Simulated assay, not measured.
Amino acid sequence: MSNAIEDRLAELGVTLPDAPAPAANYVPFVKIGDLVHVSGQISQGPDGLITGKLGADLDLAAGAEAAKRCAISLLAQVRAACDGDLSRLVRVVKLTGFVNSTADFTDQPKVINGASDFLVEALGEAGRHARSAVSAAALPLGVAVEIEGIFEVR
C-alpha cells in the first residue's frame, strides 16, 4: 500500500533516516492521546553533525539547511511513534526552534523557516504549524539548530 507522505518525500529526494536515539536520560517522544511530543532534534545530516554559530561561522542558507535536517529527524521520530506508519500523521501542531547564534544575529525566524518551509512542501496544509524561533548562546555538541515538535496523529 502506498503512503502519500513517504511518496512525497521521495519526490523531494528525501529518505527518512532511522529515528535518532536519545543522547541522555530522556525518551525521543511521548505519545499522549492523539499528540506526539518529540524531543529536540539536533542538526545532523548524512555526514554527521551540522555545527557552528549563525552570525559567525554559518550564513543564513546553511542555517536553514540545518533546520531542514532537524525537520527530517522530527518526521523520523513521528514515524517511529506511529510504529513505522507515517500515514498516521495528521498535522504538525507546533515547533520550537533554537538557533545557536551570536548576540547580534536577529534572523532566527529565517533560519527556522528551513524546517517550516520543508514541512509545508512535504505535507501541504498539514505541515502548517504554530512556532517559536529563539536564539541560544550555545547548543548541545555545538550544533547550529535544535528543534522540538508536537504532532497530531491517528
Rank of each mutant, 00 (worst) to 15 (best):
G33S: 09
F151P: 10
R79G: 10
S135A: 11
A122V: 05
S135N: 11
A64M: 08
S101G: 07
L123C: 07
A126V: 07
L123K: 09
R88Y: 07
L119E: 00
E121D: 11
A24F: 06
A144T: 09
P17T: 08
P109H: 04
G84V: 00
Q108T: 10
H129N: 10
A66T: 02
R8P: 07
V120Q: 05
H129P: 02
L9F: 05
T102C: 00
K110S: 08
G114H: 04
R88Q: 15
S73Q: 14
A67Q: 05
G33Q: 06
R8H: 15
A67I: 12
N3I: 00
L9Q: 08
F29Q: 00
L75A: 05
I147F: 09
S101D: 01
L54H: 01
E6S: 15
V143E: 14
A136T: 02
I32N: 12
L54R: 02
L95Q: 02
S101A: 11
R88I: 03
V14R: 10
L119C: 03
E125T: 11
D18N: 07
E121S: 06
V99M: 08
V30F: 02
Q41L: 07
G142C: 06
L49M: 08
K94P: 00
G33L: 11
V153D: 14
H129C: 10
N100Y: 05
G55H: 00
A24H: 14
S135Q: 11
V120E: 04
A64E: 09
R79W: 12
G48L: 03
S135D: 06
K53N: 04
G33D: 04
D18F: 03
H129Q: 11
A115R: 00
A133I: 01
Y26F: 14
V90I: 14
T106D: 07
R79D: 14
S135G: 08
M1I: 15
S2C: 07
A24G: 15
A66K: 03
N25M: 12
D107S: 12
G48T: 11
A115F: 05
V111E: 02
R91L: 01
I42K: 04
R131L: 06
Q108L: 02
L9V: 05
S39V: 14
Q108A: 14
P46Q: 12
L35V: 11
T102S: 08
S73M: 13
E152Q: 13
T96A: 15
H37P: 00
V99L: 11
V30D: 08
V134M: 15
Q44F: 05
V30H: 08
R154F: 08
V78S: 07
